[in-house]
Design a protein around this nucleic acid. Sequence first.
DNA 1: TAGATTGTTAATCGATTAACAATC
DNA 2: TAGATTGTTAATCGATTAACAATC
Lengths: 215, 215
Amino acid sequence: MITTKNAIIRLSRYKSALARLRNLGFVKVFSDNLADAVGVTAAQVRKDFSMFAITGHRRGGYQTDALIEKLNSLLGKDSLQKVIVVGCGNIGSALMKYKSFEQEGIKIAAGFDTSGSFVKKSSEVPILSMDELQSFVSKHKIHIGVIAVPEAVAQAVLDQMVAAGIKGVLNFAPIRLRAPENIVINNVNLVLELESVIYFTRAVEKNPQALVEGG
Amino acid sequence: MITTKNAIIRLSRYKSALARLRNLGFVKVFSDNLADAVGVTAAQVRKDFSMFAITGHRRGGYQTDALIEKLNSLLGKDSLQKVIVVGCGNIGSALMKYKSFEQEGIKIAAGFDTSGSFVKKSSEVPILSMDELQSFVSKHKIHIGVIAVPEAVAQAVLDQMVAAGIKGVLNFAPIRLRAPENIVINNVNLVLELESVIYFTRAVEKNPQALVEGG
DNA sequence: TAGATTGTTAATCGATTAACAATC
DNA sequence: TAGATTGTTAATCGATTAACAATC
C-alpha cells in the first residue's frame, strides 16, 4: 500500500520536527504546529495520527514527549536497530561512517565486500568477506541490510542476503531487484535524484511559472 | 505539480531500461516491454509519453535509438551537466568519487568545504574553500549544486549557493530548506529511507499479508 | 485484409483536504 | 460558558488504469 508508505515517511518527519519543537520548549503541540514545521496541512497530520491510533486532547493538542515516544515505538526506534552494509566502495563506506544513523538508533554492525583488499576486521565497523555474511547475520540476528554494490552484481548480492536471513533492504544499485514477496525493498537512486533536479531546474528556467515542490 | 515529478522519474527509469534492452538487441520496443522492465502498466508508459509528446508507430512500437535520444534530450542529458558539491564529509566525498554520475553525463566540477583541512586544489575533483564558491559558480556557469553538510549549517549554505547563482539543489541534510520559489530543491533523507525499511520489515514480520512495494 | 499496437478518452481508484460535530 | 482543537466523515482532487477507436 503506497498510502501507508507516504504516511510512514510523514510520521518520520513529524518525529524529527517534534525533536526540534521540544528543544524550543514546546511541552504540547497542535496539529497546526506540526503541519507548519513539516509543510503539510493540519488535516493531514490528524488523519495520519488517526490511521495509527495516535490520539491527542480535544483542546490541548498532543503532549510532545508522549508523542515522540509513540512515534519512536511505531517506527521501531524503541530498540537499537542493527544493520549490515554490503559493498564498501564510495557509498557503502560513507554510510558506514555516517553519524546520523547512530544518533537515530541505527547501528551499522558490519560491512561486507568481496575484494580482499577492503577486508579489515579491526576498524570501528568491521569489514568482512562475503563468506562470513551468512554466519554473521544469523549470529547477530540481523534483519536489515543495505546494498551498495555495482549494478551488475546487485541481484546476486540480494539473493545471498535473502538466503542469509535478511528481510528488509535499502538498495542503492540503480536496478529493479527481484525478491520473494515477503522481502521489503526500498530503492534510492542517486543519479535519478540528481537528474530530476536537473530536469526541473531547466524547466523552471525556461518557464518560470512551472512551480515545483521537492520531495 | 507532483504528477510531473513522478512522470519524470519514470522517464528516467524508461531510459535506463531502454539502454539494457538496446544491449539485448532490441531495435524497437513496445509500451508493454517497457512496462515489464520498469514495473508499471503499458497504459502508464503510453500516457507518460503522450504527456511529453513522444510518439511511436501504431503497429511498430517505438524505435529504441530514437526514443533514448528523445528521453536524453528531455531530461537535459544532451549536454554535459556540471554540478558542485558543498560539504566534503562522508556523503559529499562519496558523491565526488561516484562513477555513475560521469557515466550519465553529470560532471562534478568541484567540491566546497569550510574547514581548511579538506581543501585540496590538486585532486581529481578540486576541493575549494567556501570563499571561492561565488566566483567559481559564475565563472563555470554552474546551476546545480548538492548539499551534503550538517543539518545545522544547511540553510546558511543554501543561502550562499542561491546568492552565487545556483538554481537547483539536491539536499542530503535532513531538514526542510527555505528558498525563493524559483529554486528547485529535491531532498534525499538517508535516515528516513532506512527507517522506512525498518518499519515495513517489522510490519511484514508481524503480519505477512501486509504486502509492500518499494519506491 | 486481419491483427496488433498506439494515443486518448472515460472510468476508477486512492490520497488529500475541507468541514464540522464532539468535547475539553 | 465560550472558544478552540481534535477526530472523522464527506467532498475534492489528481493520478492510474481500462477500454477502444484510429491506423499502420
